[in-house]
Design a protein around this nucleic acid. Structure first.
Lengths: 229, 229
DNA sequence: CCAAGAATTAATCAATCGTTTGAGCCAGTC
DNA sequence: GACTGGCTCAAACGATTGATTAATTCTTGG
């Protein structure tokens, strides 16, 4: 009479999803095999079809799992009220700084409580793969996830540069997000170029750089010169 | 007695390589099948093994083919003599501008003579895939290709901001290259966000934006304000 | 305790993978 | 005209793919 999922099955589902994140991130959708994923999850490969109705379903569930856990810092910021009133400009600058810090921290760690979480690396690699070559079945999922972050950033930019057109503001946003996403997506190449396998040793330094570079690039005179933050 | 490749065989090799670029770019290394590639090239799939000793060999040849044809504009710039003398600073600004324009044009078109070349899109998508998730056999090839561009850019930055440490200069370079590479790698997402499937309608406008944003971000006072270019 | 249903398993499915085979084609050479 | 060697081909190879089956184990409400 029990039509509800069991605790045990939830465990198995979770193990499969986490193994899927790791394996899909390493080898891509086509490169990863369900047998390999199941082996990693210490489960039977037939359970992929049973629980997720196939490989594609497991992939989508893995993405949903990442979205549910990730981007928590940025997601919080995106819920902030609209910028208005006399202090809007100063608020916008602070929000932009917060956005960059939150986004960078989200980029570098999956679980805020555990920066060493191996899922963090994998989840970002998987999202990067997805942004670059979205699967037909998952592009809607991706857009839905990205949209609020874009809106939040654009709202700040609009206040900071009311003289620019919407297209120019989008360019600004593209440059700001682009440097950060490239930083994350090309960590491998960056480490090779720098000859430092541990780069970045200090994330705060990189955050500071992106903040300064972006504010200068935006052309916000009152933000410089001034002491850090 | 003929141990040399025939004209006919060169044709086939070329058709296979170009079909490989298109297919690998669309589906990735694992997603693309040699039968599909061969069909596209109107050739027999056994020829992949015959000419390139396997799928992996064809993939490497495709990368080499891209590197040989692509990045021609940037590559020219990278051969410029060292910056020195009284005009070094002004030269460096111009070189940076030229670098951004050349890099953007290389990003958006494979063959300079034919901006509509479908290989251009595919080649860049393939390189982006490769930068993000380098295959063990091809990372050396990738670094060797990227290195001169990095050196050229860093030389300019060093002249423009002699007060910065090497690490800080690398951060600057990362931001400048990052915004451009993200622009290219995430064109799909950008078009969805903008609701404009034809973005960018005017590449020059984007080049201008990246140039301005980068020069401001670098903190080059004498570059602003001033008329375009 | 005991059916009922959810969860898991090993075995197997057809399909496709990259690669190999062996024969045939076509140019040049003696 | 026989021969050579580069090139191309259809056919088949073993391996692996994602998915399916049917039997078994586990869990739980009555």
């Amino acid at each position: 009479m029990n039509a509800q999922p069991t605790d045990a099955s939830l465990d198995t589902r979770l193990r499969l999803i986490e193994a899927a994140i790791l394996t899909f991130a390493e080898k891509g959708f086509d490169g990863a095999g369900i047998r390999e994923i199941a082996l990693r999850a210490k489960a039977n490969s037939a359970l992929v079809t049973y629980h997720f109705s196939g490989k594609e379903g497991l992939y989508l569930e893995a993405l949903r799992y990442i979205f549910a856990r990730k981007a928590c810092r940025v997601a919080e910021l995106a819920t902030a009220p609209a910028l208005e009133g006399p202090g809007a400009r100063k608020d916008a600058i602070q929000r932009l700084k917060d956005h960059i810090r939150a986004f960078m921290q989200d980029l570098m760690a999956c679980d805020p409580l555990d920066p060493q979480d191996p899922l963090g690396e994998a989840a970002m690699a998987l999202m990067a793969r997805e942004m670059q070559a979205p699967r037909a079945t998952s592009s809607a999922l991706l857009m839905e996830q990205i949209r609020p972050h874009v809106d939040h950033l654009m709202q700040c930019l609009q206040v900071l540069r009311p003289d620019l057109s919407w297209g120019e503001l989008l360019n600004m946003g593209m440059s700001i997000q682009g440097q950060m996403l490239y930083f994350r997506n090309s960590l491998g190449i960056s480490r090779l170029i720098r000859g430092d396998p541990n780069f970045p040793e200090d994330l705060e330094e990189v955050i500071r750089h992106f903040t300064d570079f972006s504010l200068r690039g935006l052309g916000i005179p009152e933000a410089f010169p001034q002491p850090r933050n």
